[in-house]
Design a protein around this nucleic acid. Structure first.
Lengths: 367, 367
DNA sequence: TTGAAAGCGCTAACAA
DNA sequence: TTGTTAGCGCTTTCAA
């Protein structure tokens, strides 16, 4: 029993394959009686058009790509068995435990925004969140399947982006404006401005002049931009940025805990820990709070991202909220815009951020 | 400037298109010098193979589908402007506000699990989370693009599933074991057993005999199964299930709040509210707690799913944890297994659940 | 080790 | 309104 094709449907309905195609693509161009006959045959044969053939012929896929390599930091479950013997177990889940807590990935929002916007515009979305061995292969694979692709800035070599962009439009997500020669379209948030505003606020409103910056991975353009903002705020307030401590984190909560422990052990605790992202800040809280360090009285801790977990922590996390969902949507719109107008000048969308002042920096807030 | 094809690469390297194809698919079948020449041409021309053409010729796409229609309940942002004038704003975000809180979608885990497992196995994943007008079209569209598809049980008419399954394998996710005639592969969790265990626990350990069940949408097989478990527990304890109140929710937090308000207004408050999912239970807490109802002393509230928000609520939510990530992975494995062995008997994977007892049902738990 | 050639299933001129 | 036909870019026998 083979899969039905246009030919089968055409034969069954006693029409040509062109008519079958028309019925599916532009039904109004076909006489009603013919149309109904064809539709009946489609039903009868269980016909579903092959997208491969369709896209090959049409010279477009109707799919957009989103590539975020190396984001997922969960460890691997390995081969899990299909069947398990006990179907229910019961545990008393006391507070503090987190055995079933999923990591709150900060790009979830981007994904949702893209997803939604893509379908809204009649496109499907193909996502590659590759903790895979070879991001290059993954990106090339995706690139062959889609009409345009959005890539997390800094995640793949420019070389590769150049290569891929000879086939389809490439949009960068996040990071700084690109240097002149690489004129990819680019959507991002006001990393620098956000961090500058937050830091300046700490400098003004608290007596917090001894601030340390907890960075993300060295190759993250987003972390770099946020550091920029941090530095600018210090300079703006008349401090020498060179004297500020920099701790090397990697955006992960785990790593942040290690750093906090070191801080605690060496006793070199700054007045404020300005973290490059929320997960890092939460990792700090994980260690400091149980150790009896009062936040914000002893140490101010701030994040960046505005993830849900920061709103639910104790104390709640002062942070810079990024409109992740909007960012995803902007990426989609940039791709579509580029597809429609291949020759327009490079798009640069810079989305605004919002500094959220909460208890980790502010003392008790007014209700 | 056109996009490079095999023909361009072949001409550039002075070989046939067959050789170009070989270099990319089975490099070992080509003499090294030739291979290097071809690879150089690939680089020079910025060649990326067309997946459409490749899949058409190969008769497989290397993509798996995941279809979850009507899940996303965010409302629509509409057309947002590309550029905004202010790049940073600052707000004091007092506790209680939630203006930037994204909804914690309970299928996130399934998505992550599928994503990961698919790439692990060398497949890409195409996801359709359709709040779209027409799920049928969306599913058909996806079905044309993939080698197999996993569909949320109960989300599309059997008719359509039958149709699609004549082209590619269809795996159902969630819900009850299917009736005999429809022998789709099926992965799900122990809904019934989980709810039975939870309810039985309430019946035994609390003085909670007056329980109400807060259902999900009428057409949700998952909700139906959970209700089954609820009923069985009542019967097992010697109660008449017919006397238990059933409230008609729809899995949404909003709807649950309305129900809670009604309950409050009419004063017909049961001893325990056994909710068909966590969001419903959280919606109940949203209303009951501020109204001064003590949970669990006055009313016990329980959920189902094990979402993160239930671990962070006050009081924390007693619930039945489903291994969402595992479920996603199981769906992928089922699809692959079916692709490899088209004639094997139907797969039925039933994943175990875990009852998590927390403060919304238990009083203060031991540390 | 390489090349020639026949499809894969569909779309879109162009003709009828 | 419908049919004929020439690709779309690649894989894969089969020969050379």
């Amino acid at each position: 029993m083979k899969v039905a094709t246009v030919y089968d449907v055409a034969a069954h309905a006693a029409v040509s394959i062109a008519t079958v195609s028309r019925v599916l693509r532009r039904p109004d161009d076909v006489r009603e009686s013919t149309r109904e006959r064809v539709l009946a045959s489609v039903q009868a044969l269980g016909y579903v058009p092959s997208a491969s053939a369709r896209c090959l012929a049409a010279q477009r896929t109707g799919v957009l790509g989103l590539f975020f390599p190396g984001i997922d930091d969960e460890d691997d479950g390995g081969e899990a068995p299909f069947v398990q013997d006990l179907s229910v177990s019961m545990v008393v889940d006391a507070a503090g435990g987190s055995e079933v807590a999923p990591p709150n990935l900060s790009f979830d929002g981007v994904l949702r925004g893209s997803e939604r916007e893509a379908w809204r515009q009649g496109f499907a979305l193909m996502v590659g969140v590759g903790r895979d061995a070879n991001p290059a292969d993954m990106l090339r694979d995706i690139a062959g399947r889609v009409d345009a692709v959005a890539v997390l800035a800094g995640s793949v070599p420019d070389e590769l982006l150049k290569h891929v962009s000879r086939r389809i439009p490439v949009v960068l997500i996040g990071g700084p404006r690109r240097c002149a020669e690489m004129d990819f379209d680019h959507v991002s948030v006001s990393n620098r401005e956000g961090m500058r505003a937050l830091t300046a606020h700490l400098l003004e409103n608290a007596d917090a002049t001894d601030l340390a910056f907890v960075a993300g991975p060295a190759d993250s353009p987003d972390s770099a931009e946020r550091y920029q903002g941090f530095v600018e705020a210090l300079e703006g307030a008349g401090f020498d940025p060179a004297t500020a401590t920099i701790l090397q984190g990697d955006f992960s909560r785990i790593r942040a805990r290690r750093l906090a422990e070191t801080l605690l052990a060496t006793g070199r605790m700054p007045r404020g820990l300005v973290c490059a992202n929320d997960r890092t800040a939460l990792g700090m809280l994980d260690v400091l709070v149980p150790a009896g360090v009062r936040v914000p009285e002893d140490v101010i801790v701030t994040g960046f991202d505005g993830i849900e977990a920061g709103r639910l922590s104790t104390p709640r996390l002062t942070t810079v909220y990024q409109p992740m969902v909007e960012l995803g949507r902007a990426a989609i719109r940039a791709m579509l815009s580029r597809i429609e107008h291949p020759d327009q000048p490079p798009i640069t969308a810079r989305l605004p951020v919002k500094v959220l002042l909460r208890e980790s920096s502010e003392g008790t807030l007014p209700a």
